[in-house]
Design a protein around this nucleic acid. Structure first.
Lengths: 347, 347
DNA sequence: CAAATATACTCAAACGTTTGTATAGTTTGA
DNA sequence: TCAAACTATACAAACGTTTGAGTATATTTG
């Protein structure tokens, strides 16, 4: 309550041992119900521990055992529904299995991502789960994770050169579904917002877009394929540019919900009717997509499942003790969610 | 690239020492530029470390120094804008000062919160920053943090009995502003969504509501004050109940944006015009509030600033080494954001 | 009844750092 | 020139736990 001000030394296993006239090793075993310790001592140790409010020092135990029971997670932003749902998924499985998670935000900054990887390796986490930052082109900072024989798992935005497990969506398929749907709704000239092409997700999503056009014999016009960093702001600006073209597009498909939102707001502000004049769709199924007006068609990525797959894959690899496991690629099938922003009466 | 399969033992300070024909202690000092070590050796040590890709073991160093350079954060949910912004704020300051953060989600579950506190104490974090779960009535699990002399800081939802620093909004004031505004807009019968009253924030917000009514000589009607867990779902249900009253309210003020959203969706679905027939406002300024239709009036809590205050307070307390510091209460003034959901033409 | 076997412990080393103290070797000063 | 002072390094203990090996006592076995 008031924090009594005796300089209480933290109590250790040695203190318990002294009080029970035995040794630290015996206490250590007693507390973990080792069968080699008599029942009576086990009980005594545990009740004394409770009484003195003993908290095991997991730093010491981590050092001795070479295991920290911690998983490091590095994502660009935790305040995106996609990432926070993945993290929730990881955390649920992890904590059921006695692991805690350490969450780091790279803020899409390669330097920060590198630092966090260093920190996690230094902290001797038992595994690292990563989705790359938007600006990460070079993957060399992950080499040391492999060298340290720490299980490494990527999801969503991955390092393709690295031979490690990865959990992915079929981004091509997701994009293909969305664009095919838009074509079916009668849109003829569909612009596309893409991210950096050294990242698998953006390359794949673009391929899905191209495939859908091709499939419907629509010619690709590079003028309406825009590359940017897919934020709300740049989405707004890109929409502005597109709408001022003489031959303006009648739809926008964005590989990010945030950029789609920016575009949507631009269109709304400029009284372009959605979906009648211009259709619009995004990617990721962020919460806000169902709430904007009109509600945004988007591609759901099963974020929570991705998280549980990541965690399960980690558990498997850690179990195998880094020996002869084969990296695995798990691909989920994304789901198209059709909402008002593309529901045009077919012409 | 392919993870060469020699069972490479991790290299330690001892390995470096052997190669340079010196001792671990000297290497340890050399790597940290201790002036007692000759310049040449310092350089040699550092370049060898780089060459061999030496990664210091922060577990060992943590054990020896009794410091982990880690801050534990416990929040109900990381996928709420309010919390993730606070975390971002903490993390920015923390990482500038060499601290990493460990983020835990209590999911508003008291048991889970307790476990996480245990884990963090065991992990010997250097500080713990908490916002209580919705269901946490009993704060006894925080006693051990104090006993272990680990700086403890609360924000938003706090343990009032505990004499530790806390960063808060003036929730009464926030609520008062919102409700006063609604009254000014001509709403006469304003319902209220409240959370559990053992939590400071909900008690304070309710007080602000009551104060605003009183201030305008509006009688309080307990029939339209609803207590629930403030999720989108319960907000929906509560709105339904209220709208079916014979003497139904003409406005709803919710102490959570999520519950306000639920209510808004119910009203929209049932063709109750907002803000004409019923006004509505929430609390927290979640991203979606500006995007729903109509946009939701809400109270902004300066989430990012709360985070930086938390981190700075932690740094100060850790600096003082737990000696004679006086717990501090920092109160920020929330900001009312008026949007369409309450902009009724005054009658 | 001696020998084998269980039982319930104790001992000591180890994990990888850090840090206070000791010890060479070198320089300085009167 | 010899003690004092400094420089650069070595030594050893410590952080708190875990674990393999060792030991004393009690119990079983042929």
């Amino acid at each position: 309550m008031n924090g009594s001000h005796r300089m209480s030394k933290r109590i250790t296993i040695l203190d318990l041992a002294k009080r029970l006239n035995t040794t630290p090793s015996t206490i250590s075993r007693a507390l973990r119900d080792h069968p080699g310790v008599s029942k009576s001592l086990r009980e005594a140790a545990k009740s004394l521990a409770r009484e003195l409010n003993y908290q095991p020092n997991s730093v010491a135990s981590g050092l001795r055992k070479g295991k920290s029971y911690t998983i490091g997670i590095v994502v660009p932003h935790i305040n995106r529904d996609f990432f926070s749902n993945v993290i929730s998924g990881i955390e649920d499985i992890a904590s059921d299995n006695g692991y805690k998670v350490m969450i780091c935000q790279s803020h899409d900054n390669e330097e920060k991502e590198k630092q966090y990887i260093n920190t996690l390796v230094s902290a001797r986490v038992d595994g690292i789960i990563v989705s790359l930052g938007m600006n990460t082109e070079d993957c060399s900072h992950f080499e040391q994770v492999l060298n340290a024989r720490i299980p490494l798992i990527f999801f969503d935005r991955v390092c393709e050169q690295m031979d490690v497990s990865r959990i992915l969506n079929d981004d091509t398929e997701g994009s293909f579904k969305a664009v095919s749907h838009m074509i079916e709704m009668g849109y003829k000239r569909i612009a596309y917002f893409s991210g950096p092409e050294y990242l698998n997700v953006y390359r794949d999503r673009k391929n899905g877009y191209l495939k859908a056009l091709q499939n419907n014999s629509i010619e690709v016009d590079k003028a309406i394929i825009v590359h940017h960093d897919l934020t709300q702001e740049t989405g707004w600006k890109a929409a502005e540019k597109l709408m001022k073209m003489r031959n303006r597009p009648d739809a926008i498909f964005s590989s990010s919900d945030f950029a789609a939102l920016g575009a949507l707001l631009y269109l709304r502000e400029n009284n372009v009717r959605i979906p009648e004049e211009v259709g619009i769709a995004g990617f990721s199924n962020e919460k806000f997509t169902s709430l904007v007006n009109p509600a945004l068609t988007t591609v759901d990525q099963h974020s929570n499942e991705i998280g549980t797959f990541c965690a399960k894959q980690f558990l498997e690899e850690v179990e195998l003790n880094n020996e002869n496991y084969v990296p695995r690629k798990i691909i989920l099938n994304p789901r198209l969610i059709i909402r008002e922003s593309t529901k045009r009466i077919k012409e």
